[in-house]
Design a protein around this nucleic acid. Structure first.
Lengths: 154, 154
DNA sequence: TATAATCCCACCAGAACTATAGACATTAAA
DNA sequence: TTTAATGTCTATAGTTCTGGTGGGATTATA
């Protein structure tokens, strides 16, 4: 749902958003500036290109840039491109009569509505926020740390 | 964050909540009725007992039952008991100056506020909902399937 | 042609996840 | 007291996922 890989993707895309006026950015530059493993970020950028979020310029003086303006790229698109579907259970899916492990009946599964609700909340955040939001400096002020309980985290 | 294991845990706990007036329920019964792998659910129930959410009666005619009334057991407690902390990144944690992979500075990490927001939403759902909510029949009506987009899921 | 960049495939190691086995401890009933 | 039923606990096997790397093919520029 949210892996280190998609975190890397967000860091790289934020960098590209912040340098969208500077022409294509090379993999090596992104890796160095954002302190990300170069070969790994190479795979990630390729995935994002295949998802239509980035475009690449090949050959010498090549590099990557956003395929669209930053405010048109929702965080959801990036996460889905890297990690795949948000919801890992079939019974939660729309119009699904399929049961998944531990479900005897998808229509009466007690877990499905809970998950549906939780993932709808998180999807709303990821749909509403775009790369332009991440690229803004000092956006860390907008949701104070104290709103998140300590014991939810590592 | 939300594994098959914690889904099994919710199914088992829902079963126990629905049978809280019927005395202790045996592992074999839970596994059979909820169609869960017996030895696996055995480990899960043990974890939940260690977390103080269930109590067990040993010996012949033993079994498991809820340690508290169903409305006092938040879904969050069950998920945390099985899957551990909700948030997998240090930079998102409260009062954390620690950077995690891909962060050069936790205070200016563009990803942290986004994650803080998303996990706060999901934590609010898991805190508010209790086992009593899951145990209610037909609660699948309360959050219609159509509110969840198809392409978020598998 | 030389060079520098992306593209793409295969691959690997380790961790996490799912699941099971089996020896043991405890209890209640016969 | 014996026996059967049941939870306790640890180890472990098998699989999948994750994070990460290597190396050659392709493309563009000078």
């Amino acid at each position: 749902m949210f892996s280190r890989k998609s975190k890397y993707a967000l860091h790289a895309c934020t960098f590209l958003a912040r340098h969208s006026a500077d022409g294509p950015q090379q993999i090596a530059t992104i890796a160095r500036e954002e302190a990300l493993p170069k070969k790994f970020i190479e795979v990630i950028l390729l995935d994002l290109r295949h998802a239509g979020l980035l475009k690449s310029i090949r050959g010498r003086d090549g590099g990557y840039e956003l395929a669209k303006p930053a405010h048109e790229i929702a965080i959801m698109q990036i996460i889905k491109a890297i990690d795949g579907p948000l919801i890992p259970f079939r019974c939660v899916a729309i119009r699904s009569d399929k049961t998944c492990e531990g479900c005897r009946d998808a229509r009466t599964c007690p877990v499905a509505p809970l998950m549906r609700r939780a993932f709808a909340e998180i999807a709303a955040v990821f749909e509403a926020k775009t790369l332009a939001d991440l690229a803004r400096d000092a956006n860390f002020l907008e949701f104070p740390i104290s709103n998140v309980e300590d014991d939810y985290s590592i």
